[in-house]
C-alpha cells in the first residue's frame, strides 16, 4: 500500500516579475517501509518536492496524499509527529541563538514528551556526537557536526516518515558511513519510510529501493535498484549521471 502518493505535482514560485516552475507534473509513490531516492541536476526541484510535502512550497497543481488522505493545510501537529524533514541547509533548521540542547529538547516540549535529558543525550550519541556538544551554539560546530544535529532533531519525535535532503553531503566518509548505518538500522527497527535526496549515486544506491531522476523540474526516469546497479537506464540524462559517477569509482 502506498504511504506517500505524489500525483502530478506542480510547484510554481512567484518571483515578482516572473513565475518559476520549479516542479512540473511529477508523480511518485513510496510504499510503507520503502526507501525512495531523488537524484538529478542542481536546481531540478528535488528539495522543492520535499518542502511541498511539508507545506513549505506553493503547490500549483496535483495532489499529495499520505495513507490515501490529502494533507491538511497548514500541516499541523499530527503531521509533525509522523513526518520529519532534514533540510539541505542545516543552518536553516537550527536557531542561531538556541543551544543544541534547546534545539533538541524543543520538539519534545511541544509534543509533551518527557524524559528530555535522557532522550537528548541519546540522540546526540546516535549521530556520533559527544554529549558535551549539548551546550554549544550552532556557530560553534563544524559543518558536519551541524548536519548531524539536524538529523538528531528530526529523529527526536520518532517519526514514521523521514524526508532527508542531502543528509550526508557535508559528512566525510567515516561519519557518512555511521550516519547511513544509523538510518538503515532505524528503518529496519522502527519500520521507517524514507524519501531522500542525494547527489551521490553510490549513497542513493546503498540506501534506496527505487529512484527517480529529475531534470529541469520534471521526472526523467524511474529506476529500481537493480537497474541502477546494472546501469540499465533508458534516458540520456540518467546515463550521463551514471557514467560520470561510475567513472569516479574506477580507482576508488
Amino acid at each position: 500500500m502506498a504511504l506517500i502518493e505524489i500525483d502530478n505535482l506542480s510547484v510554481t514560485f512567484d518571483a515578482g516579475d516572473r513565475y518559476v516552475h520549479a516542479v512540473q507534473g511529477v508523480s511518485l509513490t513510496v510504499h510503507a517501509r520503502e526507501s525512495f531516492g531523488l537524484v538529478g541536476e542542481s536546481g531540478s526541484g528535488k528539495s522543492t518536492i520535499l518542502r511541498a510535502i511539508c507545506g513549505l512550497a506553493p503547490i500549483s497543481g496535483g495532489a499529495i496524499r499520505i495513507d490515501g488522505k490529502p494533507l491538511q493545510t497548514p500541516r499541523g501537529f499530527d503531521f509533525a509527529r509522523r513526518v520529519q524533514m532534514v533540510f539541505q541547509d542545516p543552518y536553516a533548521s537550527l536557531h542561531p541563538r538556541h543551544t543544541i540542547d534547546r534545539t533538541l529538547a524543543e520538539p519534545l516540549a511541544i509534543h509533551r514528551i518527557g524524559d528530555t535529558d535522557r532522550r537528548v543525550v541519546q540522540a546526540l550519541r546516535d549521530v556520533g556526537l559527544d554529549p558535551s556538544f549539548r551546550f554549544r551554539y550552532p556557530h560553534q560546530l563544524s559543518g558536519g557536526q551541524r548536519q548531524r544535529v539536524a538529523i538528531a532533531r528530526a529523529l527526536m519525535l520518532e517519526p514514521e516518515i523521514l524526508l532527508l535532503d542531502e543528509p550526508t553531503s557535508a559528512l566525510d566518509a567515516s561519519v557518512q558511513a555511521e550516519t547511513l548505518n544509523l538510518l538503515s538500522r532505524l528503518r529496519a527497527e522502527r519500520g521507517l519510510t524514507f524519501l531522500m535526496v542525494s547527489h551521490d549515486l553510490a549513497v542513493i544506491d546503498h540506501m534506496c529501493d527505487r529512484i527517480l531522476v529529475m531534470q529541469h523540474g520534471r521526472a526523467v526516469e524511474e529506476l529500481d535498484r537493480d537497474q541502477l546497479a546494472a546501469g540499465a537506464m533508458k534516458t540520456g540524462y540518467a546515463r550521463t549521471l551514471f557514467n560520470a559517477s561510475a567513472d569516479r569509482m574506477l580507482d576508488g
Binding site: 566518509a173 567515516s174 558511513a177 548505518n181 553510490a202 546503498h206 541502477l228 546494472a230 551514471f242 569509482m249
Partner: peptide, 20 residues
C-alpha cells in the same frame, strides 16, 4: 585507508558500511 573503506559503492551489498 579506513576512510576509503567506508565509502558505499554502486551495486554494493547494502550491508552496514565498515566504520572507522
Amino acid at each position: 585507508q579506513g576512510l576509503l573503506n567506508c565509502l558505499p559503492r554502486i551495486g554494493g551489498d547494502r550491508g552496514p558500511l565498515p566504520g572507522l
